[in-house]
Design a protein around this nucleic acid. Structure first.
Lengths: 217, 217
DNA sequence: CTTCTTTTTAACGAATTGTCAAATAATTAA
DNA sequence: TTAATTATTTGACAATTCGTTAAAAAGAAG
């Protein structure tokens, strides 16, 4: 019954902690205090302790946190101890890039199949991953224990496809298409809206420019 | 002197407003109230009004917001009325995908040059954008009014390159490499850490799984 | 003049930061 | 070597800051 809801802000910071702890682990650092880590990461020590305490007390007073232990605890929290099977929907520029990206496998994310509407691509492969017609997607998901669908098709097409794959039981969607997907509550969606990101960068530039200009008047 | 700092939370929502307003504009909708928009977007009307008011009163009481006007105001706020010149650093899978992505030009982001360390690529082009040796990057930035550098090289290499391009005056970095860049205050950085995003998705799946399991005991 | 809808202000809630007791580790003294 | 002392560091909680939502005031439309 002690299922306290963890805030999105905390969760968003976990991958970053994980990355820094990985670096420390590679450097054979055995232990680290919240203060040291806070200086490396440019955050407050208090925040680090608070964040980690959401998941249980991994630290020891007077000692700090054991790097190896904390690293594997965070992996656990993030669900990285489990293997994930992915499919890619849309073998365009971005889709091909993601399919070709080997690094995800290090964290247990394996791409198993690619789907597209271009018949010219059927039977071809990217890194040994077969490209198939989109009509085979339902069967493939069911037969290959697919967890996650990576959506890299135009916004206009994605709503339809997502409906289909959700209907056949997929539980997570990594959405690169520029639309807000409307799925049932038991499906997780993570959006990567590149153009939104670029606009935020544009805003940041503009506001810096403006501040500079207003300073010199 | 009235330069109130706008919170990152608000700014992050602007591109989404912009997208919905663009859709309304395409549908020839002339005006919209915060309540209608809030229902479309699944946020509170209060938040929309509060957000937009940060930038001045674009709405009219008893009328709502003029779609066309608000759309262009947001473009202005985001700095989209200005043209931006980009370079890409790193013509790997992801880099090539971004260089090939035509849509950014619609928002005024033009990719002007691509840089890599692979001599085999020199002289080749992606969508008419030339691929050049990385040693020419400083001159190119200076001679072509480059605003934004898109970093798509491995984390190990990016720190060095970023130092160089910042030294020759670049003002914004769109960072796809998996490392936190340490740049001076007048340079804007927007990170796109895909593996972090995937981990968040993994967490979301796991916590839904856990909740399901704990329900059925 | 009634309804609609924004703007402005206020209340509320969430997230971050600061502080301190308690626990451990490290150091010094005997 | 052991005991005593000091330094370190967490976890818990309090204080503060920040963000969101709601309510009140004001203005425009019909």
């Amino acid at each position: 019954m002690g299922e306290k809801e963890i805030s999105q802000a905390v969760i968003s910071r976990l991958p970053r902690y994980y990355r820094y702890l990985g670096m420390l682990k590679d450097k054979k650092v055995e232990r680290i205090s919240s203060r040291e880590l806070s200086q490396m990461m440019n955050v407050t020590a208090s925040q680090i302790r608070q964040d980690l305490n959401n998941f249980g007390g991994f630290g020891h007073q007077g000692y700090g946190y054991n790097v190896e232990l904390l690293y594997s605890e965070i992996a656990n929290i993030l669900g990285l101890s489990r293997q994930h099977n992915l499919i890619l929907v849309g073998a365009g520029n971005l889709g091909k890039a993601l399919a070709g990206y080997v690094n995800f496998e290090r964290r247990g994310f394996y791409m198993r199949g690619i789907f597209d509407i271009d018949p010219f691509l059927y039977g071809k492969k990217i890194r040994d991953i077969p490209i198939m017609p989109i009509d085979e997607i339902e069967d493939f998901i069911k037969n290959n224990e697919i967890d996650i669908a990576v959506i890299c098709i135009p916004a206009t097409a994605s709503t339809k496809v997502v409906e289909r794959i959700v209907a056949c039981g997929i539980k997570a969607i990594w959405n690169f298409s520029h639309v807000d997907l409307d799925v049932s509550d038991d499906v997780s969606v993570e959006n990567v809206h590149l153009s939104d990101s670029l606009m935020r960068l544009s805003y940041a530039m503009k506001s810096k420019r403006d501040r500079q200009e207003s300073k010199g008047n």
